[in-house]
Each structure stands twice: as C-alpha cells, then as structure tokens.
Design a protein around this nucleic acid. Structure first.
Lengths: 140, 140
DNA sequence: GTAACGTACAACCAAATGGTTGTACTACTG
DNA sequence: CAGTAGTACAACCATTTGGTTGTACGTTAC
C-alpha cells in the first residue's frame, strides 16, 4: 500500500506531530470537536499561541476548521494520522526487507557486504538505491 | 502494547523524521552501515551539515555511531523506527476507540468528557531555565 | 445599541534550526 | 616522516519556530 504524500507533506506531518501540545490538541479535537478558544482553555499559553499550533496542524491536514457563527470548530482528521502510521509501516517494511535481503544474500553472494560488520572496504563506492523519489538535493 | 517513550523522546523522534535528508540518511544507513563521510558524499550540503543531521538522528536513537579507526560508522536502529510506527498505531487505536465510544455513548452519558489529560506541573512562569521540562503545561 | 466573545492578524522577541567556514586532532598511507 | 582522510567542534549567519502583546472586526447576548 503506497501512501500518497509528497516529501514536503511528510515533513509537515512529522513536524506537526513533533510537539506534545499539538499532539494533545489533536487528541482533544478527536475526543470532541470544539472551538479554538475551548481548546486554548486547557493550556497555559496564550490563545494566539494555540491558534498557531492549530494552524500548523491544519497545514499538515491533521485537523480541519469549520466556521460556525463566530466560532471555528476544530475537527481532527484521523485519515491523515492513519496515513502517517501507514507511512512508518512502509518505512519499516522497506527497510526491514532490505535488511533481510542483504542477510539472505550473504551466503550466496560473498561480495554483498555485511551491514553489521564495521570492518570493511572503506572505499566509498556506493551501491545506492535505484529508486530516487526525493526532492531534496542529492549529489551522485 | 505500550510504547516506552517519554514525551520529550517522542518530540525528538518525530522531529528527526520531519526532514527528508534525515529520512534518507537512515534509509542509506539501513541499506548499508557506512561512515559519516561516505553518507555525506550523497548530498550537496557540507560534511558538517550532514554531521549535524546524523547527530539529530542519534539523539532520537534512530541511528547509532560506532568508531572504527578514524571513521564513525553509522548504523540504523530499526527498533526505534518500529517504536515510532507502533506509537502512531497506538494514537490511531486510542483516538479511533474514543471516537467510537463517544458515538456509542452520546445518548446515555452527556458528561463523558475529559478523562485523559496529561500531567500538569503548572508553575506558570516563563523566563526559562535553559532546559524546559517539555511536558507541555496544561491548565484546567 | 452596547458589551462581551471568538477570531484573525500584525509586530515583536528569544531561542532553535539548518546551513556555512575554519581550525584542530587522530588515524591511516605512502 | 609528511600528507591526507575522517572527524569534532567552534563561530557565525539567516531563517524558522514558538511564544508574547496589541489591535481590529464580525457575531452573539443582554
């Protein structure tokens, strides 16, 4: 299962999750959709600060806001959270697979380097991964 | 299954993952453990910049470094990645459960609110000792 | 209508981030 | 031995982040 997020969206998503206050906001909004000021009441920081946290969450699609009269109701977006979880599952899968594949090949292909052994060539010939979906600059 | 990380560690973990270069570093290190300078060759940024990224990953326990002669070999730590994945799974589970429970309880318990607020240690002064106890302060 | 509430947003600030260059030290290599 | 490769680390810089206060404006309540 492939997750549909761009690198930039992944950046935003993890960045949004990398703050305890923001995680708490999502949890509360999920528990019950509520206005920004209602959320803000639970924290010692200013209303404006909470507003900014909500904005970060919104940019990451972890919550949505919906106007209701003078209030902005914050709804959690569990789909995005699920996407994040799937994304890490994917990393786990891919990276583990690679680990196993390398281990599995050790017997038959003596030139497949041992990833755990620190004693090795040190000559930086890189057998880099063929898939390049990044948008951050790589050299090679 | 409960994941064993403190809020601060979770912050560090997600922050470390919130950068495409760092994710790429972990992927490469997982594919094959290699020295910092070998990793740095794949990026256009300076060696020192890559060093800093590795340091961030190390603080988040996503990689470990092991000295080998004059080189520092970077190993990926898949356990931490797994912990992150489990953590999001947990969020997903808990938050989804709460959603369902609330939907189910809406009729009978109008006051079913606010069970799980994190620790509060208030002391509402800013001014900041250099370390802040990153447990975000809640009010209520 | 007036007052209070909820929000938006700008201006400002301190600290953290992400990058650079330069210097120094250690470990290999010839 | 001299030279180079790999690393560590400090200093510096620009930008972002996370917080503040203040102001303005629409909406609700009285």
């Amino acid at each position: 299962m492939v997750v549909l997020l761009s690198e930039t969206e992944i950046d935003r998503l993890f960045h949004a999750l990398a703050d305890a206050t923001r995680r708490d906001i999502v949890a509360r909004a999920n528990q019950q959709s509520q206005s920004v000021s209602a959320l803000a009441q639970h924290y010692t920081m200013s209303f404006a600060a909470v507003q900014k946290h909500v904005a970060v969450l919104e940019r990451a699609s972890l919550v949505t806001k919906e106007r209701s009269g003078r209030e902005q109701i914050v709804h959690s977006n569990l789909d995005t959270l699920r996407a994040a979880a799937r994304l890490l599952d994917e990393f786990e899968q891919v990276w583990l697979q690679r680990t196993y594949r390398i281990q599995g090949l050790l017997a038959e292909r003596p030139d497949a380097a041992d990833p755990a052994s620190p004693q090795q060539n040190a000559s930086p010939q890189q057998n880099a991964s063929p898939q390049q979906n990044k948008q951050h600059e790589t050299k090679e």
